[in-house]
Design a protein around this nucleic acid. Structure first.
Lengths: 217, 217, 217, 217
DNA sequence: AATGAATGAGGTTTCATTCAT
DNA sequence: GATGAATGAAACCTCATTCAT
């Protein structure tokens, strides 16, 4: 009776760093295959088998470099996260002292640019990010972004009136993310529509800088 | 519940309309069980077996009234959609002639109220809506809402300046939905926070009524 | 991406009690198949697949009645344990007041009888019992037997001189078990050899009743 | 390590005799690694991969010197067998003419000493010996010992009365082995307990020298 | 000789769905 | 109509073994 194995909990990173060019190719092939599958068929179609088939690789090889099935998805998420985070961080740095509308303008366009590159992939990944957000994922991209942005806003809290910076940050991050991912998936044409970008800017600028307007019931 | 690769859009409705009371009970029991499972254990725990066990019903019976496993989830989504749609339609009707900020104020609060009722259920369903939106069944809800709202806005296009009504509608629907679902899942406390509601109002009002603000690069 | 399932830890007993005759047959078929495989090919050949193939049953059916692979082996062990335990307990009861040699005589013959029935099966199972003995197994047959016998011996400690009852019990249980299982596997003919039985008796009687004899180094 | 269904008995020895020092180191490293793994993690943890990792050797090299995975285990068994056999042979030689109780005394203590040296390793190996005994490789040890001892006993058959020497030999070898291995695994403290050694002696002496005692039913 | 990448058969388990009763 | 037993495809993962370098 073969002993039933126990699930590996060692981590999400590749088991081994590929050392020879052959293995680098193999890992690359796997990641590319995973990317294609996620983009073309959705996350639910991302199985070890499908990845291996598309990558032309055996399951054994897969598990040489990925500790478990999820790891390949996390790899894609990490790439996505890095791309977005890097880009957005650069915008925030470059415009640290710009007026809010200018900052938002650039942030919106940068975010749209990132997603224009491969809309379907980003739509799928964005959804995964949203689905797995909350406590638990290795790096909770959205929570982290919100927290970081909250800090920045707190430093400029004179511009916020009496709005709590973390609430403002939540609205900005989730509003931007929600709308852009929705567009990416359901109406990619909007990503190219200046009216869409303009509307988004207006929407987000209002969160930070808009007049307080609370009409009665 | 893994999404099935591609499913025919016919046949999402119950196979038979239950006509006798026993059948109605059975269907009701199944839906209630599904609701509980989704709320308490998440969509991934929604299997035919779990539903049947909780509902005290046999799989055979399940398949008498639901053409396949997904149908019960779609049923929950439909209920959710109807609740939201009905509520929001009422708001739109009641405030058809109100100034935009007033309208938005009521819409936001109505939407928040709906989600406050059973946050965990709505969080789970909201996620499903987002995940399965796109060309498929349940973007019905979002796409339809967007379309309807687009029509209404077109009728009041003088208030929109040169903004395309359907873009405005998209921003409103997706912005509201994205932010509220995010809060429902990741920060339910925000649902009770007046600053959150106020921020949302400001955000959405700006989409419809805000000044045009396009700073240069 | 299908969620990787988590191993069931619910227990070792059948998941469901079979209720219809069809399922009783199925469980019986599985147990019979497992018995045959263990006897004919050894424990290592006992896989879910092999059991299902021999029993003419699908893996799905297997898992309706057994929570996991090991359960079927435990079932065989339980049967074996019950058979042995029942038999030996009866001997101990019947001869509670007999002189030690008489008691041992009957115990040895009872134990041999049990193993004569299906030597190869018992050899394989006996080995599993030995392999999994020690802390951990649901009911550690050998440890339990040793403990029970230790108690009985403690009650008759006047016959033991200064030998610790639990040491005596250990020698009896393990000596009997070790020798008989060895014979069962490696020299089944011995099971029928009166000289073997007589030697065993002498060996075990000496443990309880023999003279103390400690020659110097 | 699951037992392979059936393996050719040729080819259990290393493929090549290592002749250069590097090769000897390599083989030694593998055997040492295997020893450590068996002792510390049990036979089930002995995989080609684990051995290679611990030994700092590549699987390719492993297969240069071992025809298959099992061979390394057999090598450990062989060492164990040699150690035991050598020791016991020395005892038998040294006490060839001693009275049986003296002989047994020394044999028991020698056997216990061997197992005291590294109880966990011997427990694991002892279990393997038991499990794989029967028509196969490693009952060599037990069968051979039994045969040799049988010959010796036959030469002193006047002390045995009418007991067949080979039956007596079987009882001695298997009784000693079974009890000591059981103790090694399940109650190592007994290995140090004089009462245990004394009991064992009494038990084995009785096999050779005890009075015939056959009570009626 | 040595490496370590690659293989792929084989093991366990789940779950949507069907169908005899 | 209802039941629940049975199915079997499909998913994850391991590990002995080979082979290009």
């Amino acid at each position: 009776m073969a002993a039933p194995p126990h699930r590996d909990t060692r981590g999400l990173r590749p088991r081994k760093e590929p050392q020879q060019s052959r293995s680098r190719d193999l890992v690359a092939a796997i990641e590319e295959a995973a990317t294609r599958i996620v983009r073309d068929e959705g996350v639910d179609a991302l199985t070890v088998e499908s990845v291996c088939r598309v990558a032309g690789v055996s399951p054994g090889s897969f598990y040489q470099y990925f500790p478990h099935q999820e790891a390949v998805l996390y790899q894609l998420l990490r790439r996505h996260a890095e791309a977005v985070t890097t880009t957005m961080a650069a915008v925030l740095t470059d415009h640290a002292t710009s007026p809010v509308p200018v900052l938002v303008h650039h942030a919106v366009h940068a975010f749209l640019d990132v997603h224009r590159a491969d809309p379907r992939l980003h739509a799928a990944l964005g959804h995964v990010v949203a689905a797995r957000a909350g406590p638990g994922l290795e790096d909770d991209l959205l929570a982290t972004s919100t927290a970081v942005l909250g800090q920045l806003l707190a430093a400029r809290s004179d511009e916020l009136g009496d709005r709590p910076p973390e609430v403002v940050a939540f609205l900005l991050v989730r509003g931007l993310e929600g709308v852009v991912h929705a567009a990416t998936r359901d109406a990619p044409a909007l990503l190219e529509d200046p009216a869409f970008a303009a509307g988004l800017e207006r929407m987000l600028v209002a969160v930070v800088a808009g007049e307080d307007a609370r009409p009665g019931g």
